[in-house]
Simulated assay, not measured.
Amino acid sequence: MGEHDTEPAGAFGPPEDSMQRLWTPHRMVYIGGQDKPADGSVAQCPFCRIPTRDDETGLVVARGRECYAVLNLYPYNSGHLMVLPYRHVSDYVDLTPTETAELATMTQTAVRALRAAFAPAGFNLGMNQGEVAGAGIAAHLHQHVVPRWLGDANFLPVVGQTKALPELLAETRARVAAAWDGVDGGDA
């Protein structure tokens, strides 16, 4: 081909194989850094701003005394939420004893609520401590609670941004918040 010749769009892309691909270009804004804080300060932290909003706008599922639960704006699966302290703290070992206890209790309640709302087959629970460990917002500690189902894609394709989500976040927030109130009497 000459210097100015073009190839048809069909000539690009993955080789033919048995892998089905779901293109999710909407996630490129996240990968490109949209909504990521410019620095680790409280003023830049979205997790510090979320509790100042109403629950629907902030996607808050439940509020405790020291911690709250919020849907992940860029979920790996439907129902993917995070439990985090209100206080701007980055390291798990820097949590106070009461923050640690409430974080654990709210994580348990999150699992119960997600089971009631979605009936998943299992869960991924975890914290990424530091940017090098995969924390998208390393300055504010957050515990991920990700529902999983049989036949669900394994974790690498999910991290590779190839996940279809069948429900809008506002609907998921309402469903999980209602289930949260129904488990453990709604206590945090």
Results as ranks from 00 to 15, higher is better:
Tyr76Met: 09
Asn77Glu: 11
Ser78Cys: 10
His80Phe: 02
His80Asn: 05
Leu81Ile: 03
Val83Trp: 10
Val83Ser: 09
Leu84Val: 06
Leu84Gly: 03
Leu84Arg: 06
Tyr86Asp: 14
Arg87Glu: 14
Arg87Val: 03
Arg87Ser: 12
Arg87Phe: 06
His88Leu: 06
His88Thr: 09
His88Arg: 01
His88Asp: 10
Val89Phe: 12
Ser90Asp: 14
Asp91Lys: 10
Asp91Phe: 10
Asp91Ala: 13
Asp91Gly: 06
Tyr92His: 05
Tyr92Val: 15
Tyr92Ala: 14
Asp94Trp: 10
Leu95Asn: 03
Pro97Glu: 04
Pro97Met: 13
Pro97Ala: 12
Thr98Val: 06
Thr98Trp: 07
Glu99Gly: 03
Glu99Lys: 11
Glu99Phe: 08
Thr100Leu: 15
Thr100Pro: 05
Thr100Phe: 08
Thr100Tyr: 12
Ala101Pro: 00
Ala101Thr: 08
Ala101Ile: 00
Glu102Ser: 11
Glu102Asp: 09
Glu102Thr: 03
Leu103Cys: 08
Leu103Val: 12
Leu103Gly: 06
Ala104Asn: 13
Ala104Arg: 10
Thr107Arg: 11
Thr107Glu: 02
Thr109Ala: 15
Thr109Arg: 15
Thr109Met: 04
Thr109Leu: 03
Ala110His: 07
Ala110Met: 02
Ala110Thr: 05
Val111Pro: 06
Arg112Leu: 14
Ala113Gln: 05
Leu114Ile: 15
Leu114Phe: 02
Arg115Cys: 07
Arg115Ser: 07
Ala116Ser: 12
Ala116Gln: 06
Ala116Trp: 00
Ala117Ser: 11
Phe118His: 13
Phe118Asp: 08
Phe118Asn: 01
Phe118Glu: 13
Pro120Asp: 04
Pro120Ser: 13
Pro120Gln: 09
Ala121Trp: 01
Ala121Phe: 07
Ala121Glu: 03
Gly122Pro: 00
Gly122Leu: 02
Phe123Met: 00
Phe123Thr: 00
Asn124His: 07
Asn124Glu: 03
Leu125Arg: 05
Leu125Glu: 04
Gly126Lys: 14
Gly126Thr: 09
Gly126His: 10
Met127Cys: 09
Met127Lys: 00
Met127Phe: 09
Met127His: 02
Gly130Ile: 04
Gly130Asn: 10
Ala133Lys: 13
Ala133Cys: 10
Ala133His: 12
Gly134Glu: 13
Gly134Ile: 02
Ala135Asn: 04
Gly136Ser: 15
Gly136Met: 14
Gly136Val: 13
Gly136Arg: 15
Ile137Val: 15
Ala138Gly: 03
Ala138Met: 09
Ala138Cys: 05
Ala139Gln: 13
Ala139His: 11
Ala139Asp: 10
Ala139Thr: 06
His142Gly: 02
Gln143Pro: 05
Gln143Arg: 12
Val145Cys: 00
Val145Asp: 01
Val145Arg: 00
Val146Gln: 11
Val146Gly: 09
Pro147Lys: 08
